[in-house]
Design a protein around this nucleic acid. Structure first.
Lengths: 355, 355
DNA sequence: TTCGTTGTTTACAACGTTGAATATAGTCGA
DNA sequence: TCGACTATATTCAACGTTGTAAACAACGAA
């Protein structure tokens, strides 16, 4: 029995009556309206305490037309990346006095469309959406009646506000760093052959750009695809590579889970990380520092993603132009990533890069 | 710009006017009221489509007095255990037409109290609460004005509905299983010395009960404490044990993360899992099957926890007695755990248990 | 004294929906 | 044909709050 018996909930009317003022005055007190005399305020406060009044948020919502709840549509809550992102978004929203309903889209196109179209029904003030299945062809679906902020780099359109992470730049930085530590035969694990948009393609692109800039030839045999990005997949992919007799001196894993599996495979094959083969990951997941050796990785700046997306959304909800964007323009922000150096890579040799 | 310009939102009144019926009839159609003639229904539906009407959920909430939103207060969204639980609760709630706001309590007493007391303000119909800091002494805090369901085994009171997991029984089952596979010197990793309530204490209790039942002596030296339960902590704890010259033939790790670290430590010391030392975990986390070797573990039945807690809460919200509990009584359900056998333990020898 | 000014409080009417009670058709047996 | 029923549709008044505009009070300045 968790329900108390309080037949008739206390309303502003009750408080008003008890304090001998009008209902609107109670409302004014509750909302910290500036022109309320100290004496009236005290009287009302006393009555509120006495009667145990709490504001009926639903009634306010109806009157004001918004709820203070935003939606967050992500593929899944269990993947560390999205769990972390959700956590940060909730935290940031709380700072701004908003609450969050997380809608898992379950890696399905259907789920993503449902989140997109159901938001209005769902009394959400706005939606932060991290698409995975929806792509460039679905731009039309994004033309919704409520404030919407996109996260990621899958869809590009200048009609929707957008917070992106540095996929290309991050992978490029990772690859360059390995090259600077002296690696010359760099494998990349987790690619999605044929993919155009999406993290795998973008990260591969970063890898290639880095090679090119550093004048290291691109070698197809060092590119190991893997549809999924679990630890397991990294293990298998790396096994395949090593078993086929190709031994790189470094591996760029397209995320940390893959990196974990890759390191495991390397060790099973009797090589040492980083002495024989360096490994770098992507995401800076919570686990990465607990691996053995701890994993050098790219931190995508999730805090910034969370902070920016929530703020932009809040501004749209309030009818304010975020970051002073001109009327009718959408906002695009790319969050910079950082390199987190740990023990799965060798130090950069004294005297810096030697070609 | 994600906001469309539709000055005046379409309301039931507009639909009613267009269809030539009363507002209440539109409401009846929307709510699938049974006594609406097919012809009227079609007319109204047509108008709804034509005008692009969507129900204003907030207005309904005000009128009906509930929102269809429940709260879920957990320590954290990133820990796989809670991420998984949240995921399942969201899924289950969705099946029953409810939505979930997750409130991370951040491992703090303050956060837990805030979740507990803020729920009413927050237009939640009810709350599912997984306490970690609040304990037996805080029973009074649980006397709230709204439906509340407790998850876990930290607090016992017969005034609040409660869904528990099998901590004692699960650990007992794990321990017994290792004994049945032939282990005789079983270490336990991750205990919290001095703790009375809480997973660590309960799981240790299960370990002791199993030993006792099987007639194996309890040996203090095989009990390895660890405040935190990360992979890292398992590694250190096991290192300490092995380095001190104590080599068990099996390890009961109090969760899967610990087990992962424990296995790592064993391998670093040149022993094999399970040939030299068997390892069993707890939680059946997503990762456990990807470890090498894959981890035998106890699955706590999170799906059942999610399902039961959401259903009990729903019943309370609807004023229905869950599971036919007598009026004025609270419900207590313990979810049974299952043993998931993988490759970190040896098979039970033919002929069954040999003492 | 009177008027304006500033500060404070109030009356009224929404916001968009649904429960309760009531009215209107339609159908059937007597 | 008439009432008695059932099926369908409507009227009315909330739900508890806040925006708008208007009223009131207090106080100097004219």
């Amino acid at each position: 029995m968790a329900r108390k018996e309080s037949d008739h909930a206390v309303t502003m009317r009750d408080v008003a009556e008890d304090a001998g003022v009008s209902v609107k005055t109670v409302s004014n007190v509750v909302n910290n309206y500036q022109f309320v005399s100290a004496r009236t305020r005290d009287k009302v406060m006393a009555s509120i305490d006495k009667l145990g009044y709490t504001l009926n948020v639903t009634a306010r919502n109806l009157r004001t037309g918004h709820t203070g709840i935003i939606g967050l549509a992500v593929p899944d809550l269990v993947m560390p990346y999205f769990a972390q992102l959700s956590s940060l978004v909730i935290e940031e929203a709380k700072k701004l006095g908003m609450r969050v309903i997380v809608e898992p889209t379950l890696y399905s196109r259907e789920g993503e469309l449902e989140a997109l179209h159901g938001a209005q029904q769902a009394m959400l003030d706005g939606l932060i959406f991290s698409p995975l299945e929806l792509g460039q062809d679905d731009v039309a679906e994004l033309d919704v009646d409520y404030p919407l902020v996109l996260i990621g780099e899958r869809i590009f359109t200048d009609t929707v506000d957008h917070v992106a992470t540095e996929n290309v730049e991050g992978a490029k930085r990772a690859t360059k760093y390995l090259l600077q530590t002296g690696c010359r035969r760099l494998a990349v694990v987790g690619t999605h052959p044929g993919e155009q948009v999406g993290s795998a393609a973008l990260r591969l692109q970063g890898y290639r750009e880095a090679l090119e800039e550093m004048g290291v030839p691109y070698d197809e045999r060092l590119v190991v695809p893997s549809k999924m990005w679990h630890r397991d997949d990294g293990l298998h992919a790396m096994n395949m590579l090593l078993d086929s007799g190709v031994v790189p001196d470094g591996v760029v894993a397209l995320n940390d889970m893959l990196a974990s599996g890759v390191m495991h495979s390397i060790q099973l094959h009797g090589f040492r990380v980083p002495d024989d083969i360096s490994v770098i990951g992507f995401d800076n997941s919570d686990d990465s520092q607990y691996l053995t050796p701890s994993l050098t990785t790219i931190a995508p700046g999730l805090e910034a993603v969370a902070r920016l997306s929530v703020r932009v959304l809040r501004d749209r909800i309030d009818g304010v132009s975020p970051f002073g964007a001109p009327e009718g323009t959408s906002v695009f922000r790319k969050v910079s990533s950082t390199l987190v150096v740990r023990n799965s890579t060798r130090p950069i040799p004294d005297g810096g890069l030697r070609l």
